[in-house]
Simulated assay, not measured.
Amino acid sequence: MAEAVRLGEAARGRSAPNPNVGCLIVSSNGEIVGRGATALGGRPHAEAIALDRAGRKARSSTVYVTLEPCAHESPRGPACADLLVKAKPARVVIAMKDPDPRVFGTGMRRLRDAGIDVKLGIGRKAARDSLAGWLTRLRIGRPRITLKLALSIDGKIALPSGESKWITGEDARKHVHLERAHSDMILVGRGTYLADAPRLDVRLPGLEDWSPKRALLTRGEAVDGWEILRKPEDVYRLHDVNDLLVEGGSATATAFLSADLVDRILIYRAPIIVGEGKSSFGYVGLDAIADAHGQWASSDGRRLGVDRLEVYERVREA
């Protein structure tokens, strides 16, 4: 299942509006005979790809898949539960049930009715983490929003002049490009667009084609090739985006935080002190320190060369 999750994670940022599912097929003698991940744009599904690669070897196999196989009619292709029934594996191991009401338990029931052993819950947390963007959009109607910031030790994003290139080192910047590759869209504000003319592409060898769509938060004129959002709440109309990465400056970060639309914060902290300079955030509606506690939880932290990555997740009621 860990390998199936890895396959699905590799498809994150390219599968929207569908979930980034991973699938691994292991024959009865322990040989991996099929691998699959949701294709660009959502079709074919991971199971269809893995079954096509496995061919007849899928019979009596064990199939590992990160999300319950779909079981609803679609003009874009057959239901994966039906493909699995036809392939006749001995067992299907599923990380998590599909919360989509069109599926929710139907895929597993169809497999069991065909005499296939079904196991649920193996690797559930890892699968949920990988599918967080799609799950967020399915649950609340907008993408999962990640805010990225490069900061000094003292929390500055730039000198008073606005100069910020480069606060962090090469390893941190490579990690940012990996995050871009796993995002469906990147957003900046008008100030960043005018000051930096950002390309917002992926500059990692072999992943150049993974550059996401670009969005601009502005009340000004539209820009060719950019999705225009007039206010942060416009993210609710991004129906083909699972993961949105916000890379704007202080004003954009503050706008999204004030609207309580940020689900995850990536802080790339460099071992430098700027002193007087531009702060990362403005006023976010906080009037008492006590109100700030309990809103964010640290979920990861690691060294990236000379810099340090800090990851925080928004604490929300289930």
Rank of each mutant, 00 (worst) to 15 (best):
A2Y: 00
E9R: 15
A11D: 13
A11M: 15
G13Y: 10
G13L: 13
A16I: 14
P17L: 14
C23F: 03
V26N: 00
S28M: 00
N29F: 05
E31V: 02
H45G: 09
A48Y: 14
R53A: 01
T66L: 01
L67P: 01
E68I: 03
P69C: 15
P69Y: 13
H72R: 15
H72I: 12
E73I: 06
P78N: 14
A81P: 03
R91W: 06
I94A: 05
A95H: 04
P99E: 03
P101R: 07
G105T: 05
L111M: 14
A114K: 00
A114G: 00
G115Q: 10
D117G: 08
D117I: 08
V118R: 06
K119P: 06
A126F: 03
R128I: 01
L131K: 01
G133F: 04
W134E: 02
L135E: 04
L135Y: 04
T136G: 03
T136V: 04
R137A: 02
I140C: 05
G141D: 03
G141M: 00
R144T: 05
R144V: 05
K148S: 11
A150Q: 07
L151K: 12
S152K: 09
I153V: 12
I157S: 12
W166F: 15
A172G: 02
K174W: 11
H175A: 14
H175E: 15
R180G: 05
A181F: 12
G191E: 15
T192K: 12
L194A: 10
L204G: 04
P205Y: 13
E208T: 07
E208F: 08
R214P: 02
R214E: 10
A215E: 13
L216F: 07
A222E: 12
D224S: 10
W226S: 06
I228D: 08
R230G: 14
D234A: 12
D243S: 00
V246F: 13
G248S: 11
S250C: 09
A253D: 07
F256E: 10
F256N: 11
L257I: 11
A259P: 04
L266I: 04
I272V: 14
I273A: 01
G275D: 11
E276F: 06
E276A: 13
S280M: 13
G282M: 07
G282A: 08
Y283M: 15
G285N: 14
L286Y: 13
A288F: 09
D291Q: 14
Q295P: 04
W296D: 02
S299A: 09
G301R: 09
L304P: 05
Y312G: 03
R316E: 00
E317M: 02
E317K: 02
